Amino acid sequence: MGFGKKLLAAGAVAAGAGVLAIAPRPGFDKSRHNVPGILDVPYAHRGLHDAGSGLVAGYEQESGDYVALARKMAVKAGYGSADFAGSIAPENSLASFAAAREAGYGIELDLQLTADGQVVVVHDADLERVAGDPRRIADLTYDELTRIPLFPAPAKPGDAVAKPLDAAAASAPDGYYQHVPLFSDVLKEVRGHVPLIVEYKFNGFDWSDRDDELMEKGDALLRAYDGPYVIESFHPGAVNWYKQNRPEVNRGQLADAASFGTDKKAATEWLAGLLAFDWLSRPDFIAYDWHGGDSPQVRLARTMGATTVSWTVRSSAELEESAPHFDRFIFEAFVPSRY
C-alpha cells in the first residue's frame, strides 16, 4: 500500500478521533526543544512582486499601490530601474524577495527540485503560468531555468504569455529579466533580515525518494542559514519529516476547506482540510485559506494552542474579515501598512 493510500485510511480513522486528531504539538515538547514562535510581521506571498499571483481582476483598487511599492523596493535593492517597462520583481524571484526585505516584510516561498537535483524557489509544477513555457520544473536543469524569463513582456500581470514548446530559448535573452532562483541564492539575498515561511511543494500525497531528496537538501540549506524561519507543507509527511528529524524547527500544516469527492485524491484533500492528519505531523501552526478561519477545525486547533496563519489575503477588506480568526497573515496585492 502506497503512502497516499495509507494516509487516506489513517486519516479516516483519525477524523473519527476528533480532538485527538487535530491537537497540535504539546507545549512541553515545544519547551523541551526550545521551538521559536512565528515572528509577528506581515508575510509577503512569493515576495513583494509586480507580476504574478494575486494581481488579478477584482483587486485593482489596492493592487496599484502594491505594485508600485514592489517596484520601488526592488530598484532600491539594486534590481532593474524605475523606467523599466517590463516586470522588475515577478513572483518568487530574487528581486521580489529583495523588495520584501527592503520593505521589512516577512517572506513566504516555495521549494522544488530541478532535474539535476537543485533546490529552487518556484510555486507551480510547470512554467506555463509564470513564463508561458509548459515544461515541468522536474524536467529542467537549473541552467535551463536561468535562460527562461519570468513573466516576459508583454504579459498580463497575473499570467505570462503562452508560447509553443519548441520556442524555449537556447540562450539567455538580452536585457534585464528575472528567472527561477536557487534557494541558496534567495537565502543570501535575505541574509536573515526578515523571517521566512518555507513551503515544501509536492505533487499529491504520495511519497518517493525524490521527495526525501527535497527534504534533505532543503533542510541542509536551512541548517546553514543564520536567520529566522519556519517550515510548512500541504503534505503531512513533510511536516512529519521535521517532527522526526528537526524537532527544534517550528513546523506548520497547510490546509484549506476542500470539498468532498468520490476519488481518492478528493477524499484525501477533504480529510486534510479537516486537519485529520495533524496527529501525524503535530504542527505548531495551521496555515489555512483565509476563508476558513471560522471553521470548527481551525477554531479547535487554535483553542488547543496552534498558531493560525491565513493565506492568501489580497485586500484590506479580506484582512479585516479574517483577522479575528488568525494570529498571522500572508498577503499580496495590497499594502497592509504605509511606506
Rank of each mutant, 00 (worst) to 15 (best):
R25T: 13
A9G: 15
T307N: 01
L165R: 15
T268W: 00
I88P: 00
V186D: 00
G64P: 01
K5Y: 15
F183H: 03
L140F: 03
N92A: 12
S337N: 14
P24N: 08
V130N: 07
S63M: 12
Q297G: 00
A10D: 11
Q61P: 07
G52A: 07
A82W: 15
R135C: 06
L145S: 04
P36M: 02
G2S: 14
V19D: 07
T303A: 10
A238L: 05
D294C: 11
A89H: 01
P283H: 10
H235M: 03
K76N: 06
K217H: 07
F97D: 00
G117N: 00
P36I: 05
T268I: 03
D40M: 05
M1L: 15
Q61W: 04
F260V: 12
G218W: 10
F151I: 06
A167V: 02
Q253L: 02
R302K: 11
L8V: 11
F285C: 15
H325I: 04
L55Q: 03
S337W: 15
V194R: 01
D289E: 14
N250K: 13
L187R: 03
I231H: 08
L150P: 00
I107A: 11
A170F: 13
G132E: 05
H193W: 14
P283G: 09
A287M: 10
R147M: 06
W270P: 01
R191N: 03
V313M: 07
G192K: 08
P90C: 01
D294T: 11
D159C: 10
D219L: 10
A99R: 04
G106E: 07
A276P: 05
V239W: 03
E213P: 04
S208E: 10
I330S: 15
K6M: 14
G18K: 09
A220V: 09
Y142H: 14
P324V: 14
E232W: 02
T312V: 05
S295M: 07
S259N: 13
V194S: 03
A301C: 06
L20C: 09
E91P: 02
G78E: 00
W279F: 15
G11I: 06
A17T: 15
D143E: 08
A51G: 00
P181Q: 08
L48D: 07
R246C: 08
L274I: 12
G104S: 14
D209I: 07
A82I: 13
I197Q: 12
S81W: 10
D139T: 05
Y176M: 09
S337P: 12
L300E: 01
K201G: 00
A138L: 06
W270A: 06
M215R: 07
G47N: 04
K5N: 15
M1F: 12
A51N: 03
